[in-house]
């Protein structure tokens, strides 16, 4: 079924099915952490998650209909935001903690060992608290994640060729489907019409905070790489270089 003919319920069910499996770091964590050991664990986990993220994006109805150039651009723009939203979702029921994976959980204070990361941890914890206050539902979470992906490059590129224009139009229609799905998910919560509108506003406004933390995180990781605190390799290196060079 094409996404344009899917009901919002069907669309959400497809993106729920696309959710990546739980991922484990699978390392013997030696505590207390050093700056290098914590950065290495964080980047190892990010690299594993990135591979699953590509698989997730491919399962979003309509994503593979976009041009390959658009697919690459979207993923390279949003990967850290997607990782951070996933982290917030895992951490939403654990105030004061960041649940990077079931076998890699950090307290705010543990961020002290990495220069400059505490500020990012605090921003992540603050956004997570906001999601906790809003009692974010799983259906809403999957819609927000798809919105981040599809919205990530909308204002940084303008289509030049007919093919690019076609892909952009497809992207806009796909975003319509995701917004419809989020509106539908909110409508199931038994709120008044006004409360539903407010909730939509509050949830989407949080996306600008996630973009902000992601930019901070990207700068931090680039600095750590430049200072040789951590060796960044594979897919993560490709994504990071893509961001730092653009």
């Amino acid at each position: 079924t094409h996404h344009s003919t899917m009901s919002p319920e069907e669309f959400i069910s497809r993106i729920m099915e696309a959710e990546p499996p739980e991922i484990y770091l699978m390392e013997d964590l030696k505590k207390p952490f050093t700056e290098a050991s914590m950065m290495m664990s964080l980047t190892n986990l990010a690299d594993k998650e990135l591979v699953l993220m590509i698989s997730w994006a491919k399962k979003i109805p309509g994503f593979l209909e976009l041009s390959l150039t658009d697919q690459i651009h979207l993923l390279k723009c949003c990967w850290l935001e997607i990782l951070m939203l996933g982290l917030m979702w895992r951490s939403v029921d654990h105030p004061g903690k960041l649940i990077f994976s079931p076998d890699f959980k950090l307290n705010r204070e543990e961020g002290q060992c990495v220069e400059g990361i505490m500020e990012i941890f605090d921003m992540l914890l603050a956004a997570t608290s906001r999601f906790r206050e809003l009692k974010l539902q799983r259906e809403e979470y999957v819609c927000l994640k798809a919105m981040i992906l599809l919205n990530s490059n909308l204002c940084t590129s303008s289509p030049q060729t007919a093919e690019e224009l076609e892909s952009r139009n497809k992207l806009l229609r796909l975003l319509d489907s995701v917004i419809d799905a989020l509106v539908w998910a909110i409508s199931k919560l038994g709120l008044s019409t006004q409360q539903q509108t407010l909730r939509l506003g509050h949830l989407t406004m949080l996306l600008s905070h996630i973009r902000h933390v992601s930019n901070k995180g990207m700068d931090h990781l680039s600095t750590m790489k430049r200072k040789n605190v951590v060796l960044v390799y594979d897919l993560l290196l490709e994504m990071l270089d893509a961001n730092t060079s653009s």
Binding site: V51, L68, Q71, I72, H73, L75, L235, E238
Partner: peptide, 24 residues
């Protein structure tokens, strides 16, 4: 450098029909 060359792994994962889990 072309976009595909710059993003070799990403490009491969997007084009490959094999599960990225297997590739990882």
């Amino acid at each position: 450098t072309s976009l595909k060359e710059k993003h070799k792994i990403l490009h491969q994962l997007l084009q490959n029909s094999t599960s990225p889990v297997d590739l990882a």
